[in-house]
Design a protein around this nucleic acid. Structure first.
Lengths: 204, 204
DNA sequence: TGTACATCAGTGAACGCGCGTTCACTGATGTAC
DNA sequence: TGTACATCAGTGAACGCGCGTTCACTGATGTAC
């Protein structure tokens, strides 16, 4: 997700990226509440006003992080489905990738769905819906276009709920002590889920 | 959830409850970030130091709200299952009540799962796990004790994910424009879910 | 290659702000006799 | 019922703090000739 900008070394080199990374680290340590532009600047080794050369204000910084998150999630979903043809396996792979992304990028995941930030630009909204469109397409390939949206919401609820519960520490520790554990749990839940989709779609 | 304390009219009457309600309203308006003890006091019509007679500090106020939330959720779940004998119907009723509670008490729901607050007391943790124990019991009645925890996590993920997505405005508006709509959506998702539980549990 | 100029990333002082929390107080209420 | 006292909910001044944001500036870099 961290995209290293090809900005050549100017004064700092690449302050924008440095600040983004500092912000993510800071949120991871202290929570969204504990994020401040001044502390980001401090950690980046620049004056407290420097970030304003790269972000209009604090909210813009948060939106930039959230956008990175949405793009990263969509990419992870696409990558996971790459080369898989079977519709059910594609959906499964997407779901596992969703949970895995959340576990590996907890700050991004929370920020993507944090309603605290002021409303994003149309561009941000577009990147936000890309991951959902992927999901609807994958669902449509199984249950057909009419049922696709409902199935997508159901599947999304399952993976999103598991992600949030893990990130909030609500799942017994021994089940999710590593990203691999979390992925295995996701697979188990998704495997259970296959039932109704199969049943509804193909009255073979 | 708002429990009106039987404190008789003392100075204010029941400042503790008034402040709790003001805090919930404030969070609803401005988000968790926008909550301040001083503004709560202002709205309650008392001096800014008055709340300290009822809450040790700001975090204690948040924990009190979260505790009300957990208790309310457990009560809603119990109430929903009351008088229902069929195990599957009990679980369904619990799930629908879960989503309904989230939709009707968005601030409580978000606060319950907000990792921003400092760690709660043992007493708070107990009230937090009550709702989950209810769920595990309901699941055990269907799939048996060994599979109960996994089924509970799966079911919880589904209802929790749907709740969060609705509260964050991620579900198309026309599907959840009222609490009744949201409940209907929850029923649809849960009905789909029945498939695998039935399949796994009873190899009739 | 060298020089003059324009750009703009980063500086540091300054602003005003609302916040959480403490503290000595006051006065309304409850209680013991 | 009446009085003296103890309790403690609410007051208002005061503290120190870090924050977001603005602004005139400086100086390193890129570019045109």
């Amino acid at each position: 997700v961290a995209k290293s900008r090809s900005k050549k070394a100017y004064h700092h080199g690449d302050l924008r990226t440095t600040i983004l990374e500092a912000a993510v680290a800071l949120i991871a340590e202290r929570g969204l509440h504990g994020l401040s532009l001044r502390e980001c600047a401090r950690r980046a080794g620049v004056s407290h006003a420097a970030p304003y050369r790269h972000f209009e204000d604090k909210n813009a910084l948060l939106l930039a992080i959230a956008r990175d998150g949405f793009n990263g999630l969509a990419e992870a979903g696409e990558r996971a489905m790459l080369g898989i043809d079977d519709p059910r396996e594609r959906l499964d792979a997407y779901g596992v990738a969703y949970v895995r992304f959340a576990v590996e990028h907890p700050v991004l995941h929370k920020l993507m769905f944090a309603s605290e930030l002021k409303k994003p630009s149309p561009e941000d909204q577009a990147s936000g819906s890309r991951a959902f469109e992927l999901l609807v397409e994958a669902a449509a390939a199984i249950v057909g276009p009419e049922q696709a949206e409902l199935a997508a919401v159901a599947f999304w609820s399952l993976t999103h709920g598991l992600s949030m519960l893990i990130l909030d520490g609500r799942i017994p520790e021994d089940k999710v002590s590593s990203a691999e554990d979390a992925e295995a749990l996701a697979r188990a839940l998704i495997a259970q889920w296959r039932g109704p989709l199969t049943f509804d779609s193909a009255p073979t």
